[in-house]
Design a binder for these strands. Structure first.
Length: 275
DNA sequence: TGCCAGGGGGCTC
DNA sequence: GAGCCCCATGGC
């Protein structure tokens, strides 16, 4: 039996092992944006699915019409202790690992990941989250709880450059119109056959996707889920620059450096602490 | 190669 | 309250 979590019934997932599931840290780890704080937890929307999530009596309770989706979304079949065992040679990140140790790499829908991270470019999280929610309200499907699903590719084809601009995308508006057209022609399964080197180049063919955004798509899209992808944003860059070369080398050669990157991001960006 | 292009929220001072 | 920066990228 899985010690981490279990689908209890057709509306409930329970997570038992909170040492590898830190709800607040996951929400603030910069990989999920469309969630709302509730009185005792969060309401989260991913793609066309939503869930109410709260912590209660040492467990996390996920209440949703789509338990199978969220079981997979939170990667609950994977024991993160197996990853953590490989972190013994990165003791210089111990503080960040301790603080963010309950972060998991989520399996977000591919299209939502691409669009979200194009909009994230040179933007602050609060501001582009607002944009993502407005786009969802304008172009997405209204769900039973009154919230809006992230727009599908077909729905977002209706958005013009002026629409994207009006909803806060700024100069990324033109990229988005082009990227939506390009994504329509994409065979996602073909991407899965590529090596990481080829994959990151293939993703950068989408307008608005450079090396950093491509690395985010590789790490956070559930279809790709490359745990050795290492997005270097301004926060990670600052940390790398303050790191001795030998530490940098250990970090950048680690098979799960994507997960380590999440710990560093959460620690420096959200908690505002220095490694 | 270097510079430029939205806007606004949050941070530092 | 001014000045700076933000999960960068493409075009010139």
């Amino acid at each position: 039996m899985n010690r981490i979590a279990k689908i209890i019934d057709n509306k409930t997932v329970e997570v038992f092992d909170l040492s590898q599931f830190d709800l607040d840290a996951i929400m603030h780890s910069g990989q999920v944006f469309r969630y709302f704080k509730t009185q005792d937890g969060y309401t989260l929307i991913a793609g066309a699915y939503s869930a109410d999530i709260k912590e209660n009596n040492g467990k996390v309770i996920i209440t949703t019409e789509s338990p199978d989706f969220f079981y997979e979304y939170f990667d609950l079949n994977t024991d993160y202790n197996s990853y953590k065992k490989t972190f013994e040679n990165v003791k210089f990140l111990q503080n960040a690992i301790s603080a963010g140790g309950g972060i998991r790499i989520l399996k977000a829908p591919f299209f939502e990941t691409v669009i979200s991270f194009i909009i994230s470019a040179n933007n602050n999280i609060k501001r582009f989250t607002k944009t993502l929610n407005i786009l969802s309200e304008q172009f997405g499907t209204k769900l039973a709880n009154g919230l809006y699903a992230f727009p599908t590719l077909t729905q977002l084809e209706a958005a013009t450059e002026d629409d994207f601009k009006a909803f806060g995308c700024g100069y990324r508006a033109a990229y988005l119109v082009k990227a939506v057209k390009q994504l329509k022609e994409l065979d996602l399964t073909a991407l899965n056959d590529l090596s990481n080197d080829r994959l990151i180049k293939a993703l950068q063919k989408f307008c608005g996707v450079g090396p950093k955004v491509a690395a985010c798509i590789m790490l956070f899209s559930g279809d790709l889920h490359k745990l050795d992808s290492f997005p270097i944003d301004t926060w990670i860059d600052k940390n790398l620059q303050s790191m001795p070369d030998f530490q940098k080398s250990i970090l950048l050669n680690h098979p799960y450096k994507g997960l380590l990157q999440q710990y560093i991001f959460y620690y420096s960006q959200h908690l505002r602490k220095n490694i």
